[in-house]
């Protein structure tokens, strides 16, 4: 499996697994990811008949059912003739990677996957057939910073950004074997792919100590006050670091930051002014796309005035 994953692959056209969040609260991420791909000459082909990755809820009840649900998406990707699937949501990316790992290391997971796939009437996914990548991976590997810098001509120059990766993008470390290999690989402990891409577009990344800290996203339903406090601390820390913008790459984190920024102001009287944007929205604007094209109007904490003042979109 590892050998297969190391083969250079063309990422100009990949299978696309948007996941449930990108059809709902994360729609602007979906829209901006597709728009940036198109602007960069990349092609996304949506996985046919994809299903929920199992998210957190199924995993909590039966991890093997969750593994099957994610593996089914990998099987569908294979059926379409692709060996790479791009999942922009951290939760989906994590779960597809976890399924890959489980099927390579856990006999019970293999048996459960084969049993349920048999009942569902499709082939059981075998590990090693499909590589799951994140949107950050995709743009970095398919385009690279040099080309991005050429295409964006420093449009984000002077914009101070805190890059927020959230807690699932690199954890747990063992399901992301491609990380921590030195050189161009991603770091589990200090992720930098988003920093690299936005810096290529001219942005100034601030030294932000909470880039992988918990946003309380999963607290949202049962303990919203803790979520608000966690998010408020992320926002105020970003501002203390000099950030004007927090860049996100996960719909759950993004929504959590936006909702609790508003909630903190309403309930606690704590107003923060840092703007929250998907990294794909920022790259899209840097590539000359309009605010509407990258879905800025869908953001809850309206950044349109700020972006306009910066001459973006």
């Amino acid at each position: 499996m590892a050998k297969d994953m190391e083969r250079p692959k063309s990422l100009k056209q990949v299978a696309y697994y948007p996941g449930c969040a990108l059809e709902g609260t994360g729609h602007a991420y979906n829209r901006s990811t597709k728009a940036v791909g198109k602007a960069l000459g990349l092609d996304l082909v949506e996985v046919k008949d994809w299903n929920c990755c199992g998210a957190m809820e199924v995993k909590n009840i039966d991890p093997q059912v969750q593994t099957y649900l994610s593996a089914r998406n990998l099987a569908k990707t294979e059926e379409m003739g692709f060996d790479v699937v791009m999942a922009p949501c951290n939760g989906c990316y994590h779960n597809l990677k976890k399924a890959e790992y489980d099927l390579a290391h856990n006999r019970q997971a293999v048996e459960a996957n084969a049993r349920i796939a048999g009942k569902a009437g499709h082939h059981a996914y075998q590990p090693g057939g499909v590589e799951t990548i994140h949107a950050l991976d995709w743009i970095k590997r398919a385009v690279g910073e040099e080309e991005l810098a050429r295409r964006t001509a420093g449009k984000l120059k002077g914009m101070k950004i805190a890059n927020y990766y959230g807690c699932m993008y690199t954890r747990p470390r063992h399901i992301f074997p491609q990380n921590d290999r030195g050189g161009e690989s991603e770091s589990s402990y200090k992720p930098h792919f988003m920093d690299d891409l936005l810096a290529a577009a001219g942005a100034e990344n601030v030294d932000f100590p909470l880039k992988t800290a918990c946003c309380g996203g999963a607290h949202a339903m049962s303990d919203a006050d803790t979520s608000t406090e966690l998010v408020l601390n992320i926002l105020t820390t970003a501002e203390a670091c000099g950030a004007e913008v927090i860049a996100t790459e996960c719909p759950t984190c993004h929504t959590s930051l936006e909702i609790h920024q508003l909630r903190a102001e309403k309930l606690l009287g704590r107003k923060t002014t840092v703007k929250i944007l998907y990294f794909t929205q920022l790259l899209g604007l840097a590539l000359g796309l309009s605010q509407r094209k990258v879905g800025v109007q869908e953001n809850m904490a309206d950044p349109r005035g700020y972006l306009k003042a910066r001459g973006l979109g």
């Binding site: 909470l210 309380g216 999963a218 607290h219 049962s222 303990d223 803790t226 601390n233 203390a240």
Partner: peptide, 27 residues
């Protein structure tokens, strides 16, 4: 100042986890 903010985050996170252990539905 940043150290203080990060310690606060740790307290919020772990405190939240302890509360949620009783409430459920936390990742």
């Amino acid at each position: 100042k940043l150290m203080a903010m990060v310690v606060k985050h740790l307290a919020l996170f772990v405190g939240g986890k302890l509360e949620q252990t009783g409430l459920g539905e936390f990742c």
